[in-house]
Design a protein around this nucleic acid. Structure first.
Lengths: 336, 336
DNA sequence: TTGTATGCGTTATCAC
DNA sequence: GTGATAACGCATACAA
């Protein structure tokens, strides 16, 4: 039993394929009688037109490619949630690619998305290599990035003001009277926003005349364990920090875990600030003071942007900076 | 500038479309000279065949539809990760549908996946209504479920032994000398595995002659907040539980949060067992004693199953039960 | 308003 | 080995 096609419908309804196609696409040039006959047959057979065939002629797939590094990372899963919800509103579906943090796979996936003829791409890659740029040069459909500015390309990027956010987090700690404020930042090689957050941190220290100490800077990989390990080293310092700013929440949890397992307390002995405000942040004990990123909204905005671009609307600006917010919870406290 | 097609390659290489197609598909009936000429042109132009057109003739899209309720739920994001990793190995891509826990959307998405002509579907829906069944009756391609047995259909289901797991968790608490063991279970209307876990709980109580008390049973929605609220009620009991078994980790964290905020301690005053072993479980303070589900593997196995089915291999059994494991951490303790 | 014919970019079936 | 040519399922320009 083959799948029913437009041809079958036409035959059953006693009209031509063209007419069926017309009712399918809501053309007004079709008589009520023909319309009804066709509709009846469609209902009876449960016929649904093949979107493959449609795509071939329309050059549109109604699919958006989404490329991320790790779907099991709460930040990305929340982002994807924002993307899919808006995509569904516009009748688009999501082809999900998970690069597992490998540059090579990222470029491969971009190629695949291109071959699959997705109507647009949203990506948050590990970084942007020349190969990424080569791809983008030849890819003619809408692309939007989140959290990653691709220099020299006028690709819209959805982000927050990471510099300011890093500044805000640090300033919060400074105002709580902390003098030795450590930071667990992103790797220097990481083209991620973590770097700008570090710049904000330095600026805040500078503005408030808090001396910058290189020993209070460690790199992390955004996983809890790296926060834990960094904190272990901080604690071994002859003069350990009384506050730690982590450029994401998971590392902050790792830091707290380390502090607690070393017989100290958060926030009594060490104040900790995270970044992102993933669900875990408010659930953790102590709950995390953190910089809230509107993650879901960022996904939603990105999706709306690709949609607009697909519809041919002009996008006036390249940077879509969403508001962040310092959320003060239990992990930070005034130092005596 | 139009996209280069097989026709262009043929012209540039001075051969026919058929020959180009042959080199593309690795046919051996093509002379080395022709092969080289074609390959050279392909390289130079960076030509990639349209998978849309291919799909139309092959009736294969190399896409698997994945339907879940909530990608931001760590359980599902980990599961999806397992799915995509294996899918990539087999050169398949994932069309992700997020039902946001609405029955109606679930069925809609199934229809969409069908129209998009995905080669197979993996789904973990909220439940299975008659409409789901109707769809499955007419859908002729491979379907695999995770964590949800569709009765009366011989659809492979990947799962753990939820009854046994619920038993194990409860037994652990009983052996720690707890007599008043509460459970936060899934709603009775929920067709989810949470129900079987409850059965396991009851059986364990029965086997060990621990009296079952209906007041120690609450329903949760798998979110932390519902665990928190349930625990509030338990604490108001004249004779509160000394141990709580939650059918997922997030509710367990909510329970602990509630206990702590009421001036009590975990595990000293109340022991708590979770379920799933999501990353949060080991990170939490205190770290969670929980039933570890091999979530990633479940995704991987499900994907391998659809792949086999697509390849026409016969699947001998319907139930793929993966091993679970009781992981004892800090949230449970012997009662004096 | 309707039907015919053509094309979308491939693969597959033929002859040659 | 290779090249026409007919599908695949749909949309659409053109005729009628």
């Amino acid at each position: 039993m083959k799948k029913t096609t437009i041809k079958d419908i036409a035959k059953l309804a006693g009209v031509s394929k063209a007419t069926v196609s017309r009712v399918l696409n809501g053309s007004k040039y079709v008589s009520p009688e023909a319309y009804n006959r066709v509709m009846k047959v469609i209902e009876k057979t449960g016929y649904k037109p093949s979107s493959i065939a449609r795509s071939l002629v329309n050059k549109k797939t109604k699919v958006i490619g989404v490329l991320i590094t790790d779907i099991s990372n709460p930040f990305y899963s929340e982002l994807v949630k924002g993307i899919v919800e808006v995509a569904n509103v516009y009748d688009y579906n999501i082809l999900l690619c998970n690069s597992f943090n490998e540059f090579k796979k990222e470029v491969e996936f971009l190629e695949i998305l291109s071959n699959k003829e997705v109507d647009g791409i949203i990506f948050m890659t590990k970084g942007v290599t020349d190969e990424h740029r080569n791809f983008l040069r030849s890819f003619k459909k809408p692309v939007v990035t989140v959290n990653r500015k691709v220099k020299e390309f006028k690709i819209p990027n959805v982000d927050i003001d990471n510099f300011k956010a890093g500044y805000d987090a640090t300033e919060h700690l400074i105002k709580l009277n902390h003098k030795r404020i450590a930071i667990i930042r992103a790797a220097e090689t990481d083209e991620t926003a973590g770097v700008e957050r570090f710049e904000g941190y330095k600026k805040a220290l500078d503005d408030y005349k808090v001396p910058f100490d290189n020993r209070l800077v460690m790199e992390g990989d955004f996983k809890a364990k790296s926060g834990y390990k960094a904190m272990e080293k901080f604690l071994r310092l002859e003069n350990p920090p009384t506050a730690v700013f982590c450029v994401n929440d998971e590392m902050a949890c790792g830091v707290i875990k380390c502090v607690v397992e070393n017989g100290l307390n958060v926030p009594e002995d060490v104040s900790v600030v995270g970044f992102d405000d993933i669900p875990l942040a408010s659930l953790f004990i102590p709950s995390l003071t953190t910089i809230k990123q509107p993650i879901y909204d960022m996904g939603a905005v990105a999706m709306r942007l690709v949609y607009k671009l697909i519809k041919g609307e002009k996008i006036d600006k390249e940077d879509y900076i969403l508001p962040h917010k310092l959320v003060i919870r239990q992990s930070t406290k005034k130092r005596n």
